[in-house]
Simulated scan of single mutants.
Amino acid sequence: MPSSPLQWSKRSLTAQAMGHVDPVTKGVVMPIHVSTTYIRDEDNAYSSGFIYGRPDNATTREAEGVLAMLEDADAGALLFSSGMAAATAVFQALNPGDHVVASKVMYWALRHWLMSEATRWGLSVDFVETDDLDALRRAILPGRTKLVWVETPSNPLWTITDIAGAAEIAHAAGARLAVDSTTASPFHTRPLSLGADIVMHAATKVLNGHSDVVAGVLAGAKADEFWGQVVTIRKGQGAILGPFEAYLLMRGLRTLHLRAGAQARSAMDLAERLSAHPKIARVLYPGLPQHPGHDVAARQMENGFGYMLSVQVSDGEAAAIRTAARVRLWKRATSLGGVESLIEHRASIEGPGTPCPPDLLRLSTGIEDVEDLFGDLDAALRSA
């Protein structure tokens, strides 16, 4: 890579992991740094820049550098041991009594955490349909609302929130906007460029893409006091991603553009074909013109509309569950974004209080042949 790498595209920079070469061996793949402690200089300083493994690691830094580049994050990126660890660190940086507005439809585990643990710490949380900017504006409490948390596309209904519009509302009230962009990934959306202050990813999903790493990441628009508090929280809680996991994540990131592009094309193909299927009552996918958030998605997403879609089965909940039981190529498993396609009856997982319709199946499209994926699902639907 040249001394001024910005002349290269994000795709090229990601494929070569920013062009870094091991200074000792000249290897094109950086080594895994596993040491937890480092030699002090004679004057007790640390000229290497590394002190201890809990707050910092060289392998983790490599992956963070690529993620910061992908997100145009001036403050940089921070890798965490899970997506939940990354997300909750943002809320932990708030003060007791602060008010939060969050998307009503969002990742179930985080929603549950906000309804239980966050309120025990003194945070006040209101959930609204953030795709309705008027509803978001009405939910803001002047002087109290400090954070607006938006998930878009939201899991598992794939509603779309206007990031630029949400940022304008949050900033007018003196609040920050954080965006969970897990299902979009920086391949489709860069929230910081649309006005968000922080973007979060469960890097377990499409960023890694191989269902073998649990990780989370935050990327910040600017290194202000709030971002510094998030850095302190990760350091104090020891929530950094380990070097082996960071290495695997970096390996996955190098093919992000190929995987995410292929998965989005297959998801679009499946969404269109399933929309005409006699056993499907409704397809939820922002790439479809009839999706209520399609116009906003078309403005703020590029390279397609992502790899996630949901379908509502015409014959109801029992037929949906039977369909998931009868697929052969699709895998009945939780998670999303991997190279293998997954299917899940989400309401069964989330339980009472879920906003997920009982007839809904969540589909995570992998990189298999799309004809095989459709054929397998078609056969299961017809036999259910």
Rank of each mutant, 00 (worst) to 15 (best):
A118V: 14
M106R: 10
M84P: 11
T119W: 12
S82P: 01
W113H: 14
R111F: 02
S81R: 14
L157P: 01
G143S: 05
W108L: 07
L157A: 02
D126L: 10
V150N: 05
Q92S: 14
R111A: 11
F91M: 08
S103M: 03
V101S: 09
G83W: 09
F80V: 11
L114S: 07
A139H: 08
H99G: 10
V100P: 10
I160K: 04
R138N: 14
D72V: 08
W108M: 08
V125Q: 12
V148D: 11
S82G: 02
M84W: 12
G76I: 05
F80C: 03
A135D: 04
A102C: 13
W121R: 15
L141C: 08
S154A: 12
T161H: 00
T130W: 02
Y107H: 15
R111V: 01
P142E: 09
Q92T: 13
R111E: 06
A109Q: 12
A102G: 10
D162Y: 06
L94E: 07
W113I: 09
L78W: 09
V128F: 03
V105C: 09
K104P: 03
W158T: 13
V90Q: 13
S154R: 02
N95A: 14
S103Y: 04
S116Y: 11
V128K: 00
E129K: 12
A86C: 08
W108V: 09
A77G: 07
D72E: 09
T159E: 12
Y107F: 15
E117M: 08
L123S: 07
T119F: 12
M84Y: 14
G122R: 13
L133V: 03
L114C: 06
G97S: 04
R137T: 00
Y107T: 15
D74N: 11
R120G: 07
D98A: 07
W149T: 02
A86G: 07
L136S: 00
L123H: 09
D126C: 10
F91W: 10
A75L: 02
N155M: 12
S103C: 01
L123C: 10
P156R: 10
S103I: 02
D131Q: 08
L114F: 11
G76T: 01
E117V: 11
P153F: 07
H112G: 11
R120F: 13
V128C: 04
D132L: 01
P142L: 04
R144Y: 03
T130F: 01
R138D: 15
R111C: 06
R138W: 12
A109M: 13
T130P: 00
G76C: 06
V150D: 00
K146F: 09
G83Y: 07
F91V: 05
D98V: 02
I163C: 02
P156G: 04
A139E: 08
W121M: 13
A93T: 00
T145L: 06
A77W: 06
R111L: 05
S103K: 03
L157C: 00
L136C: 01
M106Y: 05
A73T: 08
I160M: 08
I140P: 00
T88Q: 11
P142F: 03
E129P: 08
G143L: 00
T130R: 05
S124H: 14
D72R: 12
V101R: 08
W121G: 14
G76Q: 02
K146V: 07
L79W: 03
K146L: 07
Q92R: 15
G76Y: 03
D74S: 14
L110S: 08
P96G: 04
V125Y: 12
A86E: 06
D162H: 07
